[in-house]
Simulated assay, not measured.
Amino acid sequence: MKSTLYIAFASIILCSSFTLKKEYKSINAPIEKIQTTIDRDSIISYSKQYLGTPYLYAGNNPKKGFDCSGFVNYIFQHFDVTVPRSSSGYKNLGTAKKAEDFKVGDVLVFYGYRNKTIVGHVGIICEANGMHSKFIHASSGKAGSVTISDLDSEHYSKRFYKCIDVLK
């Protein structure tokens, strides 16, 4: 009699555990990702908190420092936007925008300092005004840190390659 009760009790527990697993799986079924629009001003507000962070070659950590692509990558990663980690990865990325279509949050892509065939620098537009825009970036130059520069300065205007929207 005891063995019959034991078997019945074990069967109930065993059956209920299978039922619970099925319910558990249905509760955790994949949820469709909801498409959200990123507020471009939020990108700039977030990036400005890193003004003054030192330049560090190959850096992508605000506690240690940033290089240009590390900074851009870090900022967009915060908003779940995937962008290249290396500035050279921007050469064939996206479609070049006309100056009048530049928007806050777009990425500016520049040729290298000495070589006009290699992409060597990137930044994020923080004030959109065509070729008179301002951008935030990690500069290895005079500033040696995350700073805001004028696109129309001689140093950057002659190296300008293109502007792309990575938020589409």
Rank of each mutant, 00 (worst) to 15 (best):
Y46E: 07
H132Q: 13
R114D: 14
A58N: 15
F66E: 05
A96P: 08
I27M: 10
I125V: 15
T95P: 01
Y161M: 14
S153M: 03
F135G: 01
I44W: 04
G105E: 02
S145P: 02
F71C: 07
N129H: 11
A128H: 01
I136A: 07
S139W: 03
T36R: 06
P30F: 10
A96R: 15
G120D: 06
N129W: 04
I34P: 08
G94F: 08
D41Q: 13
D152M: 05
G112Y: 04
P62R: 03
S45G: 11
G123I: 02
K162N: 06
R114F: 07
A58C: 14
I34G: 08
I118V: 15
D80V: 00
I27H: 05
K116M: 12
V146G: 01
A143H: 05
T53S: 12
R159G: 12
S88A: 13
G112N: 13
K33Q: 11
D67V: 02
R40D: 09
S42G: 13
A29H: 10
F135Q: 00
D80N: 15
S153D: 14
T147L: 08
K91D: 10
D101M: 08
V146R: 03
K97V: 01
S69T: 06
G130Y: 10
N115E: 09
V83L: 09
Y161K: 13
T82A: 12
V81F: 09
N129Q: 14
Q77I: 00
T147G: 04
K162H: 11
K97C: 01
H78Y: 14
G123K: 00
K98P: 07
S69I: 00
T117M: 04
V146C: 13
E32H: 02
Y74A: 01
G59N: 09
S157K: 15
V104A: 07
Y57A: 13
G59A: 10
L108K: 00
Y46F: 15
G94W: 06
S145H: 10
G141L: 12
S86H: 13
R159M: 15
Y57T: 09
T95F: 00
R40T: 08
L151Y: 02
R159P: 06
D80E: 14
V122T: 12
I27R: 07
G70Q: 06
D80Q: 13
S139T: 02
L108D: 03
T36V: 12
L108S: 04
S139F: 03
K91V: 01
R159K: 15
E154W: 11
C68W: 02
I34D: 11
A29N: 13
I27F: 10
S145G: 09
G123W: 01
F66R: 01
L93P: 04
T36Q: 07
N129T: 11
F102N: 05
Y161I: 05
G94Q: 08
G94L: 04
V107K: 04
N73W: 12
L151F: 05
V107W: 01
N129S: 15
N28Y: 14
I125Y: 04
I136V: 14
F66I: 06
